[in-house]
Nucleic acid binder design. Structure first.
Length: 275
DNA sequence: AGTGTCGCCTGAATGC
DNA sequence: TGCATTCAGGCGACAC
């Protein structure tokens, strides 16, 4: 799945059932995910209490009462199911049984492509964690400013599309939302970052925040894999303006939306509006 | 150090 | 219908 709004949706749903819950049981069915999951993870986690869940970029982080952090990354196809009764399905790789106020919940990690990852590490290792140490600012936080982007972009020759999906610069934007943001900001994805004006950067920041927030409000974008943990769909797909809209008309100028492959990734553009 | 390409893996859609 | 090819919300390992 999963760009920031989808991960945020999953994270909020998890929070509702895991906050102050006790971990009764952990089972792995496969540990060969993007990387091999640690051998003793189950042992270290059993009987711990989850404090809450929060999101950093596209990572879900769940601190425990023993000063550890449980990490879930969904990769391209990862899903979380939360149910009271459940049966193990194809591509389920892990499940947790947690108890919260005498109620039991089954939390299942399903990931057909196994590009995702699950980890457990000490809280004090958070800053140096190999997946988290280099990631950039939160797009919905205060650190995403024109000055921040100017500092990152000067002396660089990459295009703005690649910059937006580079997790080391901004954490959470992926291929769908990069197209949507640049369309609304009326900026061509191939523009070099060091050529962007203050106005351009301001538009990018403004629409990044608007689009991501709107999508979170409706449960993210369901195109193929993403589902909310209770099985319901995300409805931002209906609000997409350009992604996947090849040969449909731009709502502003009526010219056709085209698909262009940039660095091996599909990018959708209105060539008339985005200059 | 910064930049571009490749490939990890499975399944759905598309093409012949 | 059947089989091959292409493509997919990510991202680290490489080569240059």
């Amino acid at each position: 799945m999963p760009e920031l709004p989808e991960v945020e949706t999953v994270c909020r749903a998890l929070s509702k059932v895991i906050k102050n819950s006790r971990i009764k049981k952990i089972e792995f069915y496969r540990k060969d995910l993007r990387w091999q999951v640690k051998d003793n993870l189950e042992v270290s986690l059993k009987n711990n209490i989850f404090i809450d869940s929060y999101r950093r970029g596209k990572y879900i982080l769940i601190p425990t009462n023993t000063d550890k952090i449980f990490l879930i990354h969904l990769g391209m196809s990862g899903q979380i199911r939360i149910k009271k009764k459940d049966i193990v399905q194809k591509h389920d790789h892990m499940r947790l049984i947690v108890e919260n106020n005498n109620k039991h919940f089954i939390i299942t990690y399903n990931d057909s492509r196994r590009f995702g990852y699950i980890d457990l590490f000490k809280k004090k290792e958070l800053r140096e964690h190999f997946l988290l140490s280099k990631i950039g600012v939160e797009p919905l936080g205060r650190e995403l400013t024109i000055e921040y982007l100017q500092n990152n972009f000067k002396k660089r020759v990459i295009n703005i599309k690649n910059a937006l999906i580079d997790q080391k610069i901004i954490a959470g934007i992926g291929n769908i939302y990069a197209s949507e943001i640049l369309y609304k900001a009326k900026i061509n994805p191939l523009r070099k970052v060091n050529s962007l004006s203050q106005n351009d950067l301001n538009s990018i920041i403004t629409y990044t925040k608007i689009i991501l927030k709107k999508s979170i409000d409706v449960g993210g974008t369901t195109i193929r894999d993403h589902m909310q943990p209770d099985g319901s769909l995300g409805y931002f797909k209906q609000k997409l303006q350009v992604y996947g809209k090849t040969n449909e008309k731009c709502k502003t100028c009526n010219s056709f939306i085209v698909k262009e492959v940039i660095s091996n990734r599909s990018t959708f553009i209105c060539r008339h509006c985005q200059i």
